Amino acid sequence: MKKILLIATLAFASVAAKAQDAPKTESPKIYNPAADAKADISAAIKKAKAQHKNVLLQIGGNWCVWCLRFNDLVTKDADLNKYLADNYVVLHVNYSPENKNEKVLAALGYPQRFGFPVFVVLDGEGNRLHTQNSGYLEEGKGHSKEKVMEFLQGWSPAALDPKSYEEKEKAK
């Protein structure tokens, strides 16, 4: 009986040791705590202006499961991914214990008051157009594709262009 117990203990220890050596799946690192958010936002604004797009700041951290879920949705869903690419310059702005980007967030009107992720839309001049609480885009354990698309469409350059509405009026 002692031999069986010893063999079982050794087998368990061996399996446990191998499990510790197994590669752990890490979540993607989409936020960079070392990034210079102010400089990155300035570059994104310049790029957006040149491309006639708006800037979408996704503020959060690698620690935030909802931030990662949102990023997963908009990068893997072909419709959302294309719409973002066509209308926005997207920038992930870090908020974590290593770097809270407090001065940048203060200049953006303290969007962290809504939790994370939180989205800030800027125009090609750097003007803040909208701050979006991501809670309104949630559905179940993720985000609703339809709600996200509606948000993106509502703050796209075309939605804010007076010419879009003049053309609709002429068509009537």
Rank of each mutant, 00 (worst) to 15 (best):
G109F: 04
V93F: 04
L68Q: 08
W63N: 00
E125F: 11
V74L: 04
I41N: 03
A11P: 11
A39H: 12
A8C: 14
Q58F: 01
D79E: 10
P28L: 13
L137S: 08
A13S: 09
L105H: 08
K141I: 00
K145D: 01
P117G: 01
E139D: 12
V121C: 06
E139F: 12
G142K: 03
D36P: 12
F12M: 11
H143K: 02
V93N: 06
Y83Q: 00
K38D: 06
C64G: 08
F70I: 01
K82P: 00
E98V: 00
G60S: 04
R69W: 03
A39C: 12
L80E: 03
L84C: 07
F119E: 08
A37V: 14
N101E: 06
K141L: 06
I30N: 14
Q51Y: 04
N94Y: 09
E102I: 06
V89F: 11
G60L: 07
F119S: 05
D36A: 15
P33K: 15
A39M: 14
H143Q: 05
I59K: 03
D36H: 15
Y88E: 07
A50P: 15
K147G: 03
K46D: 11
K82D: 09
L105S: 08
V104M: 07
L68D: 04
K18V: 13
R69V: 01
L73I: 02
K103T: 13
P33N: 15
Y83R: 01
N94D: 15
C67H: 06
K147E: 09
S96E: 00
A11Q: 01
K103M: 10
T75Q: 11
Q58M: 09
L122F: 06
K49R: 15
L56T: 03
G126S: 07
G124I: 01
V118S: 07
V15I: 01
T25H: 11
A78S: 12
Y31E: 06
I59V: 08
V65D: 13
